[in-house]
Simulated scan of single mutants.
Amino acid sequence: MRSQPGRRVAVLPGGTGPRAVAALLAALPAALDGTGPAVRPTDPALRPPSPVTAPPGVAALVTTSGSTSGTGRLVALDGAGLLASAHATHARLAGPGQWVTCLPVHHVAGLQVLVRSVVAGTRPVVLDTTAGFRAAELAAAVRRLDPGRPGYLSLVPTQLARVMADDDAVAALRGLAAVLVGGARTAAPLLDEARAAGLTVVTTYGMTETGGGCVYDGVPLDGVEVEVDAESRVWLGGPVLARGYLDDEAADRETFQVRDGRRRLRTNDRGELTGGRLTVLGRLDDVVLTGGLNVSAGAVEQALGDLPGLGEAVVVGVPDEHWGAVVTVVATAAPPLEELREHVAARLGRHHAPRALVRVPALPLRGPGKVDRLGAAALARDLLAGADPGTERLP
C-alpha cells in the first residue's frame, strides 16, 4: 500500500515513560476520530523516522518487531479498526475499566492499552519499565487502580514469570478483572501456575496487522474471522485488520489478500480450529531441515512446554556439515540435553529430538516479549562453535 497524501502524521516518542504515555494519550482522541493528525509513536532508542503522510482514515502508524524476518514493516492502522478492537475487548472482558500500562507504546500492545483507556474514559496507571521490569513496582502500580472499576493489565510471558516469583505481586494481581498475556507463546506450566494462584489470565493471539490481540483464549473477538486452510495456515479477517504496509508494496500484496470476496490477512502461523477454538501450532517458516527431514521448531517448543526445569526457551536450526542443520534448544535454564531429547522423542519421535543445547542468561528479544529467532540462531551458532561451557552437542 503506497503512502497517500491526505493526513498529517505526528511523530511522538515511544517507550513506557510517563511523558510518552501522556503525549500519546493527548493525541489519540483526535487521531481516532479523524479531526487531528495520525500518530506515529517511535522507539526512543532509534533516530527519528523520515516524514510520511497517512491515507485518510488511518489513525496510527506502528512498526512491526520483525522477530523472524529481521526487518520491521510500517503498518497503517485505521481508527475504526483500533476502536473495533477496543470495544470487542471490553465486550469479552468485564467491560470498560482502568489499565496499568507497562509495555512500550510504540508497539501495538502498548498502544492498544491507551486506545482502550480513551474508549473507557479512564486514565491508565503508568509503570515506567525503561530501567527494567520489577514485579514489586508492578504490584504498587496495580494498587493505584480505582477499586470501583474493572482493573486490567497487559503483559508478555517473561513479565508474568517474574510476577509469579513475587508473592506480593501475585496477591496484587488477584484483584484484577483480567491479565492479558501475549506477544509470544506462554508455556502451559506458567499459565497453570498463574491460574491456580487466582490470577484471571487471558492469553491473546494477534499481531500489529490486526491491531493487537484478536483471539482471546483461542476464541476470536466479536467480528473477527479465523480460517485455517489445507496447509494449516491461519487466515484472519474482520474490522480489526490494518489498512496495510506503507513501506513494502510486495509484502502488502502477499500478506493482505482477498479470499472468497473478503479481505484477509495471510499469517505465517500454523494452527487448527476445533469447535471454533484456535490452537496456534507454530510458524510455517520455522522448519529445520535436518538429516533430509523437516522438523517444526514450533512443535518441538510445544513438546518441551511441560518439561520441569526448563526456563524461557526457543528452538532454532544451526548449520551443520553432516546434518545440514541441527535442532538446537536455546534456553535460560535447562536440564541436561539427554533429558530434553528423551522428553521430545516420547512425544514427537526420535527424529525431532534436539541434538544441541545452548544455555544463555537471557533470550535475545526484538519488541516486547518477542524472541529474536534470527538473533537466537546466530548466538547459538557462535557459542556452539566456540564450545562455550553452557553448551551441549551430540556428534
Rank of each mutant, 00 (worst) to 15 (best):
P29V: 03
G70K: 11
G17D: 15
D43F: 03
V75C: 13
P13E: 00
R47L: 14
A60T: 00
V11A: 10
A30I: 03
P41K: 06
P55N: 07
S65T: 15
G70D: 12
L61K: 04
P18L: 03
G79E: 04
P37W: 09
R19I: 07
L82H: 09
G14M: 00
V52G: 10
G14H: 00
G72E: 01
T64C: 09
A59P: 01
P37R: 08
P37E: 10
A20W: 11
G81I: 02
T16S: 13
A27R: 05
A27I: 07
S69I: 03
A30P: 03
G15V: 07
R19E: 15
T63Y: 14
V58A: 10
A22K: 06
L82V: 13
S50C: 14
L12V: 13
R40A: 14
A23Q: 15
A60C: 07
A59Y: 05
L82E: 02
T68R: 15
G57S: 07
P37A: 04
P41L: 10
D33R: 04
V11L: 00
P51S: 12
V75H: 08
G70V: 07
R40C: 12
S50W: 13
L46Y: 01
A45W: 03
G14P: 02
L82Y: 04
A54L: 08
L32S: 03
T35N: 06
A80P: 06
L24S: 04
A22I: 00
L24I: 04
L77N: 06
G66M: 11
L77W: 02
G66C: 10
A80F: 06
P56M: 08
T35E: 11
P56L: 13
P29H: 05
L61I: 07
P41C: 11
A30L: 05
G36V: 03
T53N: 04
P13S: 09
L12A: 03
L82W: 07
L24W: 06
A23S: 14
